[in-house]
Simulated scan of single mutants.
Amino acid sequence: MRLNACFLGVMFWIGAAHAQTDPAEAARQAGLRLEQAAVALSEAEGARDRVRALTVTVKAYEKGLAAMRDGLRKAARREAQLTVRLRAREEEIAQLLGVLQTIETSPPPVLLLHPSGPLGSARSGMMLAEVTPGLEAQARKLSHELQEVQTLRVLQQNAAETLEQGLAGVQVARAELSKAIADRTDLPRRFTEDPVRTAILISSTETLDGFASGLAEIASGEISDLDVDVSDLKGSMTLPVQGVLLRRAGEADAAGVKRPGILLATRPRALVESPSAATIRYRGPLLDLGNVVILEPQPDTLVVLSGLQEVYGEPGQVVPKGTPVGLMGGAAPEIGAILSLSGDGTGTDRSETLYIEVREGDSPVDPETWFRTDKDG
């Protein structure tokens, strides 16, 4: 009975382990994505539209690094689970190995002796013939689990080089993207900003409401009409950055302050894009909101993005959907920091916040009437 309990316990343990997905394969696939991003970076040098090519490259790096982080987290969890199970079943495993060793090393005459005589010997031989293949099968499965633990440990040890290359690559891609956007001359313009009028408007307003209502004053001349209607995008626009919804419109923050916009948690240095074709009405520091980009996708509708560290483009430019308009702040994580996050999954890697406000006419509206927030970016 004791042997049967051991046998069934080990079989259940191994079966449950195999029912899970393969975290090692997930981490390997993430490594391939980073390698593909490196290839895309080299090819972007000769692309006709370098901004578009580099945008794709930066996003590929971001997704590859996120996948690598997730893969390492799963690998660490899997390795920990297997280690705990191995330690918890040390006695049963020792019994299993002991029985197998006895079967392999006992001389035939000893195996044939039984206190009940020839009939007992025959019965024990039949039982042994039935049990031995099962024990050997479980031993093979146990060996496989032990090998998996070793593979996961080696995978985590070797991840440092892949991460180092990925972090270096995305840094280069972001720098190249900033330069390509600064050199861009092919975008249409609806107006040219007057820096003096902009400075006067900023100094004379104390709220976002007041600044937004006075945006027409920053142009040196008339602002050409924009005959565009994006109302059909309501409720389906993609968020401008990969992130997690922290606070909805009207929800109070830790200080009890309620704002009409939503707040997203993002990873450091994440790329922020225009969610639709839009005119850049303003970009730069504003009030207590940090660096701000104000986009106008259609007349009398503004999308305000605040909390960026770097902002791209020039006021008056009409940018296509998906055009980078800035980068989030924070320091790019070190390899050690990423590896230390591999075991928790608490979201502590999303240390930056982007505030999004949508204004129709002179009033803010709930951004979730425009943006899809039901998915983790």
Rank of each mutant, 00 (worst) to 15 (best):
R78H: 09
A67T: 02
A38S: 12
Q101I: 10
R89P: 03
V99P: 01
T83L: 04
L119D: 04
Q150R: 09
Q157Y: 09
G120T: 10
R153D: 02
E35Y: 07
A40K: 06
L146R: 10
K141F: 11
T83C: 00
M127D: 11
A60C: 05
K141C: 08
E35H: 06
V149A: 06
A67V: 03
E148F: 05
Q156D: 12
P118N: 00
R87I: 08
T105C: 01
A88V: 14
A47F: 07
L100P: 05
L112H: 05
G120K: 13
S106D: 04
I93K: 00
E91C: 02
K141I: 02
A37H: 00
Q157F: 07
I93L: 06
S124Q: 14
A80P: 02
G71D: 04
A80D: 11
A40E: 06
P107E: 10
T151K: 09
R85W: 12
Q101F: 14
L97V: 11
E35Q: 14
R69A: 12
S124K: 11
T57L: 02
L113E: 10
A139S: 13
R73T: 07
R87Y: 03
I103Q: 11
E145L: 15
M126E: 13
L155I: 06
A40M: 08
E79M: 01
E136M: 09
A139N: 13
Q138M: 05
A37M: 01
A94P: 01
E62N: 00
L96M: 11
G98I: 07
L96C: 02
A40T: 00
R50V: 05
S116I: 10
R123G: 02
G46S: 13
H114F: 03
R87L: 09
S143N: 05
Q81E: 13
L72F: 03
E45V: 15
M126V: 14
Q147N: 10
A94R: 14
G46Q: 14
L65T: 12
T102W: 15
E43V: 10
V131K: 08
G46L: 05
V110L: 13
P108H: 06
S42E: 13
A38H: 03
Q157G: 03
V56E: 13
S116V: 12
V149C: 08
V131C: 04
V131W: 09
P115K: 06
L82S: 04
G120F: 07
A47P: 01
P107N: 12
A122S: 11
L135R: 06
E35V: 09
V154R: 08
M126R: 15
S143R: 08
L119Y: 14
Q101P: 01
L112R: 12
Q138K: 08
V110H: 07
A122M: 12
L34M: 13
E43Q: 15
L112Y: 09
A66V: 07
R52S: 14
Q147L: 12
L119A: 15
Q36Y: 02
E145T: 04
A75W: 00
R140G: 06
P107T: 13
M68I: 06
E35P: 00
D70L: 11
P108L: 15
R123I: 14
G125T: 11
G71A: 08
L41N: 02
E92V: 09
I93W: 00
G46C: 03
G71P: 02
